[in-house]
Design a protein around this nucleic acid. Structure first.
Length: 598
RNA sequence: GGACCUGUAGUGUAGCGGUUAACACGUCCCCCUGUCACGGGGAAGAUCGAGGGUUCGAAUCCCUUCAGGUCCGCCA
């Protein structure tokens, strides 16, 4: 007989009746009837009920044993009477009667019980993560994560991608997030950086001729955490392909995501591919964001022109429009019967968000004519109402909200309002995964505070403009072969066709203030690689954590991470970060500055 | 760096100016041979995160501070 077990705790059925078996596991739950004791024995696979009578020599020991102790038992499998069968357990037809007992590891009284699914404070859970992880929900989440990663690995390999590891100790890269630095002992005063992503390495893998690469890649960014974003580290399905256009990348990955989400999506509907492609500009207009939730059917319209015409005499808006504001309209179908508070609350909400507010117009039909009502209706001509209803595709019984702001604020407010209205009106179809691609991102954006042009996305993307035309165009109008994969309003991935032409590389960087020398110094490896025969290439890097969160249906990244850091980037279990010894610091040529604690 | 929320026995919650701070789970003791959130009876366990203030009186109100979380900034 095996030292610890002949079966796991989820295996035994009535066909095993009368067999003598050995099980090992945790004492999940005890039910002590005085002269009869039930113990639910739990392992990774499940739970088996074990039973012992007071005639047994081990009865007294088991009565005293603490939950979560690890025991090993030898016993005989008995079929339960029909009235005692537990339909909730796969092993509910049988129970195991104790013959021999071995205590493998005694547990102390628990700081957080495993049994039951109480909500414990985050710090307790992280401090006792090994107990937390025994609990079914999170245990299942972690297994889901493992299965997702295995599935992705298998699929990517089948698709002809090669999995490679890239360095963890590498060079700090300009642009992007704050780096984690690692001091070099052999090179005093110098530092490695942990990779924010293997971006340059994967491009050089293409230069090296490997054609298709992927990796479940750890990415390190020293930025503050959020519920959906771990401080410190996260994982991406990093991938890159040679001799491709963006449609090749889309058609390669769409079936992968379709299969992945169909397989692990708990029966939720998954959008059929090809996924909808939406240009960045359209997305910002219609959805007020570059990560639209397409489970929400509402679309925003631009009605600046109509408000600026003589058909609407709303002077407050006209004045704002003259100062560069725009007007965006958010439809609220079939909401005319909503109480006044519904409209006023949204207006108040917009003001709380720092906006001017949300005006609204109610639409009814009378004798074949659409008529506007509500606080601002008196400013609309009949034709004005018609133009609005036509543009916003609304009709009898609908309401439309208007946000008049500077473009950026109008987009933000209308986007949020679109989501709020849809929630209030129950229009969001929650039982689906709705994918889309956002394409044609602008290469640059203008930084108002620093009064300069900067990269809006990835600096390595290929501009959608010929080299000769580059300088003739307004930089802010130049688009890039840059795309995002979005699902249910969550950005799953960024990606791009890369800029593989050295002269274009210099050109692109020159607009954000990098001289040729700057580029050579800061991207020396990359630019050198482009000089010796580079295949056109592109790829993307979907966030593993976000995929798992979507599929597990959780809002917090710590629910799908084995050993996460807390918001202050501390590991409460391992006690990291921690102070180090003077000897270690000396070896590294590092002095620490003691901060005053007044 | 900023804003907001939370902090009460081992654990989860209630109490939100007025005697011995309540309930549930857990722990300990007693009873119980068919439970599966077993049941019944009893006991122990809390200077209400910490410090200061207001008040005749503070878990409760105010200030400071610490810890955790959420968001903004930051980040793809």
């Amino acid at each position: 007989m095996h030292k610890y077990r002949t079966h796991n705790c989820s295996e035994l059925r009535s066909k095993h009746e009368n067999k003598t078996v050995k099980l090992s596991g945790w004492v999940h739950r005890k039910r002590d009837h005085g002269n009869l004791l039930f113990i639910d024995l739990r392992d990774h696979y499940g739970i088996t009920q074990c039973v012992i009578e007071n005639s047994s020599e081990n009865f007294k020991i088991l009565e005293k044993i603490k939950p979560e102790s690890v025991i090993s038992i030898i016993g005989k499998v008995f079929k339960r009477n029909s009235e005692n069968i537990n339909k909730d357990l796969p092993t509910g037809e049988i129970e195991v009667e104790f013959k021999e007992l071995q205590i493998l590891s005694e547990a102390q009284e628990l700081p957080m019980p495993v049994f039951g699914e109480q909500n414990y404070p985050e710090d307790t859970r992280l401090k006792y993560r090994f107990l937390d992880l025994r609990r079914q929900t999170i245990h299942d989440n972690i297994i889901l994560r493992s299965k997702i990663i295995s599935f992705i690995r298998k699929k990517m390999t089948e698709l002809g991608f090669n999995e490679f590891q890239t360095p963890i100790l590498t060079a700090s890269s300009p642009e992007g997030a704050r780096d984690f630095l690692v001091p070099s002992r052999l090179n005093p005063g110098k530092f490695y950086a942990l990779p924010q992503a293997p971006q340059q390495f994967k491009q050089m893998i293409m230069v090296a001729g490997f054609d298709k690469y992927f990796q479940i890649a750890p990415c390190f960014r020293d930025e503050d955490g959020r519920a959906d974003r771990s401080p410190g580290e996260h994982y991406q399905l990093d991938m890159e392909m040679s001799f491709v256009e963006k449609e090749d990348i889309f058609s390669t990955t769409e079936p992968l995501f379709f299969e992945l989400f169909s397989k692990f999506g708990n029966g939720k509907k998954v959008s059929d591919f090809p996924y909808k492609r939406i240009s960045y500009i359209d997305s910002m207009l219609q959805y007020g964001t570059d990560k639209p939730d397409l489970r929400n059917p509402l679309k925003i319209s631009d009605v600046t022109e109509i408000f600026n015409s003589n058909e609407i005499k709303l002077d407050i808006f006209k004045k704002q429009i003259n100062r560069g504001a725009i007007v965006r309209a958010i439809p609220a179908p079939n909401s005319i019967k909503k109480p006044r508070s519904f409209f006023d609350n949204l207006n108040q909400w917009a003001k709380d968000e720092g906006a001017n507010g949300l005006a609204y117009l109610l639409i009814t039909k009378n004798k074949g004519k659409l008529i506007g009502s509500g606080p601002i209706a008196k400013f609309f001509s009949e034709n004005g109402v018609n133009q609005i209803t036509k543009k916003c595709k609304i009709s009898d019984g609908d309401v439309v909200f208007f946000s008049c702001e500077k473009q950026q604020i109008a987009e933000k407010i209308s986007g949020l309002a679109r989501q709020k209205v849809a929630q209030e009106l129950n229009l969001i179809q929650y039982n689906q995964f709705h994918f889309c691609w956002i394409i044609d991102y602008p290469l640059y954006k203008y930084n108002e505070e620093e009064k300069k042009i900067e990269f809006s996305h990835n600096p390595f993307s290929m501009p959608k403009v010929d080299y000769e035309e580059f300088d003739k165009k307004d930089p802010l109008k130049i688009l890039a072969e840059q795309y995002d994969l979005v699902c249910n309003g969550i950005e799953l991935s960024s990606g791009a066709i890369r800029n593989h032409l050295p002269k274009m590389f210099y050109k692109v960087f020159s607009k954000v203030g990098y001289s040729k020398e700057d580029v050579n110094r800061k991207f020396g490896g990359m630019i050198k690689a482009l000089l010796y025969g580079t295949p056109p290439h592109g790829g993307m890097a979907p966030g593993i954590d976000r995929i798992v969160m979507l599929l597990a249906g959780v809002e917090n990244i710590r629910e799908i991470t084995l050993f996460p850091l807390n918001q202050n980037a501390q590991d409460l279990l391992m006690n990291a970060p921690s102070e180090t010894t003077d000897k270690q610091l000396k070896e590294l040529n590092i002095k620490t500055i003691k901060k005053d604690k007044n």
